[in-house]
Design a protein around this nucleic acid. Structure first.
Lengths: 328, 328
DNA sequence: CTGAAAGCGCTTACAG
DNA sequence: CTGAAAGCGCTTACAG
């Protein structure tokens, strides 16, 4: 069965393709008789007409597609919620968002063979050559960074400040010997390193000893190893800042296996507030992120990149806070 | 800066656009002088030429894009891994996969304004009208179903058999009064209902009493309510089949709060084997899915839909098995 | 072995 | 208020 085109709709409605286009795109500044309008609309409906995205894009040089590029991360509930917000908000502006999982480490260039987005929203940083290639193809690039970035148009979720917040919380509860539980999954290194940097900086600012870092796999044995190391020194660790909630849950299991009480012997704080964090024994204290505010900022950035008349948004601040539960 | 087109490459290389196209697409059956080939390739490289996806798609009536449509589910590690596998395997066949999160309950039709995939891979079922619209637009539709489905080309992950497996495991350990912990999140109802159906069927097949169903929110209070209900009757529940691991973890927390021992007083089995399942106290018994086999099947289905000469694959069986840990 | 030309389906000045 | 025509950038018969 052949594809239905605007020519079909035009013929069946007894008008020209121009008129069909005007009606279907509710073209401004052109007046169409109500009768014609209705006729075209109903024919289109009846025929099940769908405009060809390829033709529209080719002709207008612009598409309604925003591509969200995910770096090689594991995707948990936080990113899931972010994507959810982005999709919905962008759709409210007539933009469709599709997600590319750049796990396979393939060059992004492959993608432009398949799709022509008007903007690309990178949740991680792009390589300079990728970014250049995109701009050259007329694609707006909205990037993100995990650090403070000199480019004001780059979205920044300062990972270091998460680590800072963890230490602040722990220090305020009187802890002085603090450890950092790093993830064993390499894909998370970009985040983990920066969060650790924040932990180290805040410890030093407060005159606390440098945190002992141990990688913790998501199993009990690995956590037990880390716990033994942390507790073995002359001044045993009394608090652990974990890379995220999953790692924190592993630490909890290691502590339990070693017969240590939480938070009496060792306090633990995570990041993310995953659903199971509150189900742990004891319920996990964690750092929460304002995903909706981050999504809104990102959407506004995309809109500003697409339309010169739209002002770029203010970076949201205060996107983190500590949720106190029973593990600290 | 204007877009680089194949005409630019042709001019700079001193050949026609035809030749450029032949070289860049490594067109079979056409012989091009090695010298010309190299010249074209290097000019394209130097100019940073990226073919226009819109033009290719419009001209050839076919794109390299596979769209994966996610229903309104929460996305956990299982779906994440599935997407990962799909992206990689499809890329090996020259196809780019993009993911659409259909959460916003918008009609899929909106999407065809932005993008023209060659195939759509639905992880949930499509409405008949959506499926029809896609076929009418020349898009191959590869659907999935959660139940046995009369259409042999539909991919089926029989959710009911997950529930059956849970009961089988529990019954073999001597349990007779089994409860079902349903998720409170409505978005999961499609799965939950079917898994429950499997639980009910297997109980009845084994002559066990009908399972008591309680919804369990991901918090301790909700789980405690459910546990009290399960334990209050004349024949208290001794085993719980949970919708998934998160719900199972909640049940564990409710049991703990009520002072019940696991598995001595009550056994618990989940589904998914999320990373934190093994970190629970006690470590959670769960049902594992062979995601890689499912992904391979799906990829083969897409390939078969795209090329009539490729045989549709055999449905994989044996995609589930129980991972025994300490909670049963 | 290489080129001129047609045409995919749309939108948009331009003319009437 | 509506239509004829051009052109977006590519691929592919067809001719040489």
């Amino acid at each position: 069965m052949a594809r239905v085109t605007s020519a079909d709709v035009a013929r069946e409605s007894g008008v020209s393709r121009t008129t069909v286009s005007y009606v279907l795109n509710a073209k401004h500044g052109v007046t169409i008789t109500e009768a014609t309008r209705l006729r075209v609309l109903s024919t289109a409906e009846r025929l099940g007409y769908t405009p060809s995205a390829a033709a529209r894009t080719l002709r207008s040089g612009r598409s309604d597609l925003v591509l969200c590029v995910l770096p090689n991360w594991t995707i948990g509930p936080v990113i899931d919620a972010l994507i959810d917000h982005l999709t919905t908000e962008l759709a409210d502006h007539g933009l469709s968002m599709l997600v590319y999982n750049g796990r396979s480490n393939r060059p992004l260039a492959e993608l432009w063979r398949a799709v022509t987005p008007c903007a690309v929203l990178g949740l991680g940083a792009f390589t300079e050559s990728d970014a250049q290639a995109m701009r050259r193809a007329g694609i707006q690039v909205v990037g993100s960074a995990l650090d403070e970035d000199p480019h004001p148009e780059i979205f920044v979720v300062p990972q270091a400040s998460i680590g800072g917040l963890q230490v602040e919380h722990l220090a305020e509860r009187g802890h002085r010997v603090i450890a950092y539980a790093a993830p064993a999954d390499d894909r998370l290194a970009a985040f983990a390193d920066r969060r650790l940097r924040g932990v180290v900086a805040e410890c030093s600012r407060r005159g606390l000893p440098e945190p002992v870092v141990a990688p913790v796999d998501l199993d009990v044995a690995s956590a037990v190893d880390a716990v033994r190391r942390w507790r073995s020194g002359a001044s045993p660790v009394t608090a652990v800042a974990a890379y995220n909630d999953e790692v924190a849950l592993a630490v909890l299991s290691g502590l339990r296996a070693e017969g240590l009480r939480v938070p009496e012997d060792v306090a633990v704080i995570g990041v993310d507030d995953i659903p199971t964090a509150r189900l742990a024994a004891p319920a996990l204290t964690t750092v929460w992120q304002a995903i909706d505010a981050q999504a809104s900022y990102l959407v506004a950035s995309v809109l500003a990149a697409l339309d010169d008349e739209v002002e770029p948004p203010q970076r949201p601040d205060d996107v983190f806070h500590v949720i106190e539960r029973d593990s600290t």
